[in-house]
Design a protein around this nucleic acid. Sequence first.
DNA 1: GTCTATACGCCGATAGAC
DNA 2: GTCTATCGGCGTATAGAC
Lengths: 194, 194
Amino acid sequence: MPDVSSAASPVPRALATPVQRAIAEHAHRLFHEKGFSGASIRDIASAAGVDPSIVMRHFHSKVELFARVIGFDAHFTPRLDGPLDTMGRRLIEYLLDPEHEEMRRTFTVLLRAADHDALRQELVDVMRRLMVEQLGPRLEGPDATTRAWLVTAQMMGLVQAWDAIEQESVTEKGRQRLVRLYGAAVQQLITPAR
Amino acid sequence: MPDVSSAASPVPRALATPVQRAIAEHAHRLFHEKGFSGASIRDIASAAGVDPSIVMRHFHSKVELFARVIGFDAHFTPRLDGPLDTMGRRLIEYLLDPEHEEMRRTFTVLLRAADHDALRQELVDVMRRLMVEQLGPRLEGPDATTRAWLVTAQMMGLVQAWDAIEQESVTEKGRQRLVRLYGAAVQQLITPAR
DNA sequence: GTCTATACGCCGATAGAC
DNA sequence: GTCTATCGGCGTATAGAC
């Protein structure tokens, strides 16, 4: 099974040859622009100036190619080491920061790719490694792992619904109020009220 | 644009002929079992005992067929009219009730189908109509519509992550604690703490 | 005119020729 | 090692049967 997380962005390690690099770069770009199902191997090969079979030869399958080049780890770098009592707010600030649009887009692409079984498992693994395994041990009180998963679920839901919500909170002030509101809801799981 | 919401389950209104009914019933079943991309028009036609072109003739496109027969409205019926101060808990109880597995499955199928642009817009419209427009007017205080959207985002995220979370909270007690935890986080958006 | 079998242009993936 | 040819499957358009 491919490993989304091990891919540095935009080009993973161990891509020695120029052809492999070209394929990886154009695949990275096209997947981010058009999503998993929207970008075809033929598109990617054409953009990289190679035959489609060369892409298959080097990356074995479309799913593996996607996992190798999507580079979510390099984009998704929330600070999970700060003070716990303000982490909810900080997490959502990070998630919705206008400067982090590329991370958000990568997150969105990954969420939508969850239609495919193999990529859905990748999403679960990545979320477990980047969120649950980092945040869970820091949480105090009972059900720490479950609460870390629920925080993750909140972030996934916000990213999934963001396109719709954004149209209703276009102003910077609206965005800030939204960060405060949703941040408080996330905080509820990080430091539950008694 | 097709309208997911107008479809009664499992067979929408205005499906007069036996052929239309057969197609709709098998489409409903196969979409629920295998998802939007997993169920092909040829599969559905074969199950219904007709030629694939007959399916196209009656439903115009795969997207429209999906929207007509998915029947989310008939499954997703949360109680949004009870007391506000316990609604967060009740919403999550409803969402995770073991008896509501078919609703959850329908929700999941709809979320995963959001890879397609047209169906993503359908998802947004359905969520707006079934959640935001019902809950928003009931919320007191500022940003009522935004908060209703954020509650919706929380529910979408929980459904999306549920498969992964479920494996960590298999017991009934674990599920109940989870309902209480996430319900409190949802409550934070329904009746924000001062 | 209504209906349907066939055909078209994609897709991901494979086998074999150079 | 690279490319050609091809496969089976997809959603969909259309020409032709009735």
